[in-house]
Design a protein around this nucleic acid. Sequence first.
DNA 1: ATAGTCCCGCGGGAAATCCCTTGATTCCGC
DNA 2: GCGGAATCAAGGGATTTCCCGCGGGACTAT
Lengths: 215, 215
Amino acid sequence: MKIVIADDHAMVRSGFSMILNFQDDIEVIGAAADGIEAYAMVAKRRPDILIMDLSMPPGESGLIATGKIKEDYPDTKILILTMHDDEEYLFHVLKNGASGYVLKSAPDEELLLAIRTIYEGGTYIHPKMATSLVREFIKKDKTASTEDLFELLSKRELEILPLIAKGYGNKEIAERLFISVKTVEAHKSKIMEKLNLKSRPELVEYALKKKLLDF
Amino acid sequence: MKIVIADDHAMVRSGFSMILNFQDDIEVIGAAADGIEAYAMVAKRRPDILIMDLSMPPGESGLIATGKIKEDYPDTKILILTMHDDEEYLFHVLKNGASGYVLKSAPDEELLLAIRTIYEGGTYIHPKMATSLVREFIKKDKTASTEDLFELLSKRELEILPLIAKGYGNKEIAERLFISVKTVEAHKSKIMEKLNLKSRPELVEYALKKKLLDF
DNA sequence: ATAGTCCCGCGGGAAATCCCTTGATTCCGC
DNA sequence: GCGGAATCAAGGGATTTCCCGCGGGACTAT
């Protein structure tokens, strides 16, 4: 596979080139000293993988370059190689389309593993960095205890609550459930009483937190 | 650090015990053959780390045991060791409180690295497994293009849309923005016209997808 | 400059809908 | 059999919705 290295330190570039070229399946076909050069190099050589240092001050930051390159040349996988074990970077970089994140302090084997992983379409995140990713994931997904819900609300109420939250009118709900509008209103009152909600927005928020809004 | 190993294969247990006890900083203080035994062992010995095989058929699945143990003994870190490189498992296991996920096919060094990482409070996910995690993360965070929004809707409309979606009544919105109810109605009409929405639920859905509902 | 367009704000009035209180039925567990 | 909850429902006042229309300010193209 063909690789381009982008790093503002010449020594780092040649060092990694040595290591990589020593591999049978890897060929370093270019190098760049900043984000702009990296973009140009990718445009010219079309590598399979671009290894990019995040902190390249002069031309353009590696982060921005990552976004641009990924947008124009999505086939080139981007592996971020950095000395920051900062969580913030990880998020931004992933959102900008990078496929991997390896610390410069990692052993050579890890770099090679990362390269081969993303070459095959995978994503390589330095395991320790996964912490923040997992935390975010759990946070976004585990808001709902769901348990307390089923204990408090009846079947009917549990059926009506999401509909209200989704913005359906009482009439629509009534038609959908083949009951009277008045009944829907009664249920709604009961729900709000049980859950100690006193306004529609609170109800929407509640439903949202309990993941009842699945459009 | 003190470790308990849970695996239904005796050979696996002794094998790993050998490897781990060979380390200066690790001491295997117990073993279990199923989820129930694992729970009891954790209750008795209070290890720093529990290494758990996911697929233990007889007593109780490792997954469920993980949840129970984590709930009652949150100080014990749980490292999942499995042969499944299945995405589904990863999610469930993380939600149930595991701190690490390592494949049985991984080299010993990786296991040791994982143990030490989670002992220090980190989270270790096998890098290749990060793929699905990242995918989910990006999906949950990048649903909104947000761009098209700001082009279509005016400032005021962009201010009102979320309020409607959140369930606020026209009157409340009017009071909050110091404008007339009639004006709110007008804006609402404009919004629905521009976005081709014809009902309140559609509007809520739209707002939700654009991440405008941030309670 | 003038006309066109968009954003913002406001209003009337009629019909539909929502909100709140009250009450009837049924079913369940004690 | 009796309290309690679930389900259903009506009456009446408050609110929203939907149809209209009005005017001022900003920006643009002619």
